[in-house]
């Protein structure tokens, strides 16, 4: 499968916003969804991938794992005061082992539009499409 399938997008929710990652594997879909999450806050291209942070989480099923992954990322953003633009996700036995690269938030550079409070179970799906592409999505509360 071509890697060009990997992409992200937002979808509407009346009060908030949905993040969707599409990828050639579940891992790629998780990575793309993380970029979609960052894009809720700012333009990911404004973020230099200078500092690496490791993130891991575990859950009983793929959908909970996806929400946990985004919430773990939100936690790192909030406590490290960082933004990320590059991700590498490995999923093994319902466990995410990931590295995120980014930099400290600079208001003048990144002009963050909004902070994300948490990932929700609304419109939550992790599934493989008939064409083989993986989709991971949910609404995030801002």
């Amino acid at each position: 499968m071509q890697t060009t399938i990997n992409r992200w997008e937002h979808f509407p929710h009346q009060a908030d916003i949905g993040v969707r990652g599409i990828g050639s594997s579940k891992e790629k879909a998780f990575e793309q969804a993380a970029i979609a999450l960052i894009a809720v806050i700012t333009d990911p291209q404004l973020i230099s991938p200078e500092i690496a942070v490791t993130i891991s989480c575990q859950a009983p099923d793929s959908e909970l794992l996806f929400v946990d992954w985004l919430n773990a990322l939100i936690y790192e953003i909030a406590t490290r005061k960082m933004l990320f633009s590059r991700f590498e996700v490995i999923i093994k036995n319902s466990r995410v082992e990931a590295t995120a690269w980014g930099e400290k938030i600079q208001t003048s550079k990144h002009k963050p539009a909004v902070e994300v409070k948490g990932a929700t179970y609304t419109d939550l799906h992790v599934r493989q499409e008939e064409n083989g592409a993986w989709i991971a999505q949910c609404v995030v509360d801002v």
Binding site: P60, L64, D68, I74, Y75, G118, Y121, L124, D141
Partner: peptide, 25 residues
């Protein structure tokens, strides 16, 4: 936000144990 995130997860998983049929997680 963090308390909401954590308890939402715990309660969603535990609901079945308490015999609660959730129409929406």
């Amino acid at each position: 936000h963090q308390i909401g995130t954590e308890f939402l997860r715990t309660m969603a998983i535990a609901a079945a144990e308490y015999g609660i049929d959730l129409p929406d997680r």
